[in-house]
Amino acid sequence: MTGKPSMEVELAGVVLKNPVMTASGTFGSGMEYGEFFDLSLLGAVVTKGVADVPWPGNPVPRVAETASGMLNAIGLQNPGIDVFIDRDLPFLAGYDTKVIVNVCGHSEEEYLRVVERLADTDADMLEINISCPNVREGGIAFGTDPAAVEKITKAVKRAARQPVIMKLSPNVTDIKVMARAAESGGADAVSLINTLTGMKIDIEKRCFALANRTGGLSGPAIKPVALRMVYEASHAVKIPVIGMGGIASGEDAVEFLMAGARAVSVGTASFRDPLAAPRAAQGIEDYLIRHGLTDVKDIIGCV
């Protein structure tokens, strides 16, 4: 065999140089991790959720460690779309990677305001977070009812200039129904899973470990659940599925690709190893070489 295998994948007309991106909220807008590696090594950077105005987020403690995972209840703290467009997008424009902007809101109007502001920026894609378990209104309220998923997807699609990824919640009875709802609303892709709602109690202090009481579980602990849902979703819809949940290595990423994901996101793993995302990309390539494969597309959905 000669040369390197092809790592390119395509999502709704957007070509990524490799299938690895960052999971929203675990990577900021890349500035901090940019101190550790060249962001151009990534297929895409997915930014922290951004709203129409700054959001202060939840009280602390916001994070807690659990066995092979963590709970977070950040509450979508973000500087708002104006600062994001002035500061974060120009920073990311300096790298040869795609930029996917994660959007949050409390209401349809708030989502649309952000989507409209992004229309004349060079963001490559939008990811609509309808699955955050840590804010009371909006977020997950949109993500757990199929009619609401379809409605918000339609509204966003009408307003958006870029391709739209709907980010699905795992806190539902049947992920296939939600994926189909996003597809019939016109979504260009779906991404999953967001965090699973969980809880931790400090038995010495007799109180919740998180000020918000509940938080979203992420990390290796959720990987088998995430993988099952990615498999189900990718067999329920024709649009591409972006898989995430506990990916910490190239091998983990290969599992998600084989389950049917067209691309994958590395989230919590970056907290343990700032280089986790580029290492996962390298790990996929190593796997392909080891197995004499020439194209990453050959393993997508192969099981």
Binding site: W55, G57, V83, S270
Partner: peptide
């Protein structure tokens, strides 16, 4: 994260912070 990316470790401040503008 320990490096400024996740917004897990905040303290309330008297003034508006430079990063998140809250």
């Amino acid at each position: 994260c320990g490096i400024g990316a996740c917004l897990g470790c905040i303290t309330k401040t008297a003034g508006v912070d430079g990063h998140s503008k809250v």
